[in-house]
Design a binder for these strands. Structure first.
Lengths: 211, 211
DNA sequence: CAATACATAGGGGCATCCCCCTATCCGTAT
DNA sequence: ATACGGATAGGGGGATGCCCCTATGTATTG
């Protein structure tokens, strides 16, 4: 099985490569430090399976890269690797088309298991969520990850970062009044009464891998 | 050199162990998944060098564990491993007494370098900060990590979480006016002009490993 | 075709925040 | 002893935010 490893942390990537190479039937064909590099190297080396971290820099995160990779090489299998075990992450993983999902805290043998299963065309999601929940999410492929619209998400993100309505309005090229409306719609949709509930919802859902 | 590896992510830990074992003069004597386990195993196996992640669960993070480890075994050397390259982290590392500091994004060879140097009694801090800045921080061992007072830090933290002045005042049992004053003092101290700069400073310094 | 969702924008009004002051009390350091 | 930093609190005024309302254009969907 030809595997490519994608992770922006050099040290971690090297360690994972050694882990993979300890299996006789795995060959690490390439490794990349970001999404763009991954797309290029996948074309050149044509790996069977790509093992990819979700948190990556330069705007091209693991989800986005997975989508593009599968579009580019439809037969490629992708296993996402992350420390996050939250519904929003798993839903995004499913919607990105990833074939596998494993946690950094999981056992070393899960890594091989995941690659083996997806190589043979099987799905492999190892999370704390139940198989039923995963199945349900697979059937809801079109359901938005967030109850908020894209615009509302942008407004919320900028609000968490402390920008005033006026500043947000300038950034998004709309009027401050519209920003107010978006905020008010967010509060209604999520059935929130106080500003701090909205901020904390935003932090939890859009900044959980802040760094 | 007998080395112990401490990281709560099993997969990452196993990878790093393989990386270390590829060096002939390094022997991985033990590995631990949290701070408590690390303290116990360090007693039992007496490693020369401990390579430890900073972000760890159960309240006992890398800094705290380092302090306790050095108190328990004064001849032990600790190398901290993290993805954070920010002044606050490095200052805390210095104050915890850690002998080395390397980033997950750094090169594989830095890992060996760090262990080799601290084993031979030298300090090894590989960050984007200049050697002068590190030297300065070493001389300021007692200086608080934050330029803000404890009260200001509390106010900032609650502000980031979206609480209004009135709500913060109630939580801290002070008047809303005093909260305003603290905020204004924060802005002056940090030489900030806009609210979002303060919020983002707060996020960076008090919520960087949110999850 | 009608209904719905989404993004846009404004009016009016009240609450809150932010900024520039002044002020007191306490503890520590020079 | 005096000076300084830290925490507390208030006045006044202008800016901003938030809430309730109305309104329009577009796109999608039943």
């Amino acid at each position: 099985m030809k595997v490519m490893v994608v992770d922006d942390h050099d040290l971690i990537r090297k360690g994972i490569i050694l882990l993979l190479e300890s299996y006789a039937d795995i060959e690490v064909a390439a490794d990349a430090g970001d999404g763009n590099e991954a797309l290029v190297l996948a074309m050149q080396t044509e790996p069977d399976v790509v093992l990819m971290d979700i948190s990556m820099p330069n705007g091209l995160d693991g989800f986005t890269t997975t989508k593009q990779l599968i579009q580019q090489q439809p037969n490629i299998k992708v296993v996402l690797l992350t420390m996050h075990d939250e519904e929003a992450y798993i839903r995004q993983a499913i919607q990105s088309g990833a074939h596998g999902y494993i946690l950094k805290k999981s056992q070393g043998s899960d890594l091989y298991e995941a690659i083996y299963h997806v190589y043979h065309g099987q799905r492999y999601y190892r999370t704390d969520l139940s198989e039923e929940q995963i199945e349900k999410m697979m059937k809801e492929k079109e359901k938005p990850v967030s109850p908020l619209t894209l615009r509302e998400q942008e407004v919320l993100r900028l609000t968490v970062l402390g920008y005033t309505n006026k500043e947000i309005a300038e950034k998004l090229h709309i009027s401050a009044k519209t920003v107010e409306n978006h905020k008010s719609n967010i509060m209604n949709k999520l059935d929130l009464k106080q500003k701090h509930e909205m901020i904390q919802y935003g932090i939890k859902n859009y900044f959980s891998d802040m760094r």
